[in-house]
Amino acid sequence: MKLKTTFAATCAALTFSALPAAAHFQLIYADQTQIERPGDVPVKLIFWHPMTAGHVMDMGMPQEFFMLHRGERIDLSDSLTETTFTGPDNTGVAFDGVVPVKRSGDYVVVVDPAPYYEESEDIYIRQITKSYMNRNELPTDWDADLGLEAEIIPLNKPGNIVAGSTFSGRVMANGEPVAGAEIEIEYMAAEPDMATSTAGDMTITPPPGGAIVAITDEDGEFTFGVPTAGHWGFAALGVVEGAEHEGKELSVDAVIWVRAWDISAPAAN
């Protein structure tokens, strides 16, 4: 999970890697992201393999859970309750939370999870994750730099990407852009059922060739052509050099989730 030493000079290189197709991804999932009326919006925090609806990892209590709205950081950790999430293969510890949506604007939701020990690699993984909601289509905070230890700053509005267009982001670590960062890209192939805390039906078959990967350019930027509507996750792996936890390597990853939509034809009169 080390940074690449070579990179494209002007744009991100997109390729298929020999890495496993089922990547670890921290989720912040809500079944509504474009909010019309004020109220408490339930979210689920799940550590999962969303492209294949694979193994669910047990989460520890997150270190932080908060939102940014109109420039104000609001702690949401008191809303967290431990629960379980069941995928096709197993059940794991997850968390339910609440995002209070009142005024119009963007709601940038962030979780900094407890480090997870990956026995097969003998390392810890900590995926600092952002997702987005909006009320009344008013842009306020979507492109904000939150100053996180690791984060991906979106260069397109992350809540209404048009399927068939592109999404671009800039990878940052401790306030500096990260050149040559490896970005794993996954589609949420089975959306969680909020009521039952189980995985829904698979909607796609993962592509051949392994994980979908892009590499950031010298400015820490990457671009991905979004082929279909739905939830897309981007994980910049191991972008904080030299990180450790309990005497072992700690991969500090930056994760962002965006929502793509189809453009529909108008209804016939």
Rank of each mutant, 00 (worst) to 15 (best):
P88F: 11
T129F: 02
G105C: 04
S120H: 13
D89Q: 15
F95N: 04
P113H: 02
S168V: 03
N136S: 14
D112Y: 06
S104T: 15
A163M: 03
N160H: 10
F85N: 08
M172A: 04
A150V: 09
A94M: 03
P139Y: 07
D145G: 07
S104G: 15
S120T: 15
M133I: 07
V99F: 02
E137G: 10
I125L: 13
R73P: 10
N134D: 09
F66H: 13
T140F: 07
L80P: 01
D78H: 13
G159M: 15
R135L: 04
T83K: 08
I125R: 10
A150N: 02
D89A: 12
R170A: 08
V99M: 13
L138I: 13
E149V: 14
V110A: 00
T81L: 05
M67S: 10
S131I: 04
V109K: 08
Y132A: 06
F95E: 05
A94W: 01
R73Q: 07
D143K: 04
E121P: 09
L148P: 05
Y117P: 12
Q63P: 03
I128Q: 11
D78M: 14
N90R: 08
V111S: 08
L76F: 01
P154M: 10
V109P: 13
V108F: 03
V111G: 08
T166E: 09
R126S: 09
P115N: 08
T140L: 07
E64S: 05
K157F: 15
V109G: 03
L146Q: 07
N160F: 13
P115E: 03
N134T: 12
G164S: 10
T129E: 00
T129H: 01
A163H: 08
S77I: 09
Y132H: 07
S79Y: 00
E151Y: 01
R103Y: 11
I125F: 14
F66K: 02
F65M: 02
R135T: 04
R135I: 02
V162T: 12
P113R: 05
D112R: 11
A94N: 08
P88M: 08
M133Y: 10
N90I: 04
K130D: 01
V171I: 12
L155D: 13
E64K: 07
P100W: 00
E118Q: 13
D78C: 06
I152R: 05
S131R: 11
E64V: 08
T129N: 06
Q127A: 11
I123P: 03
I128V: 15
V162S: 09
F95Y: 10
G147D: 11
E176Y: 05
P115K: 04
M67D: 02
T129D: 06
N90Q: 04
L148T: 00
E82Y: 06
L146M: 06
R70W: 01
N134V: 14
W142E: 01
R70D: 13
I152F: 04
G71V: 00
V109A: 02
G87Y: 02
D106Q: 08
L155K: 09
G105A: 12
D143T: 04
Y107G: 07
T166R: 13
V108I: 12
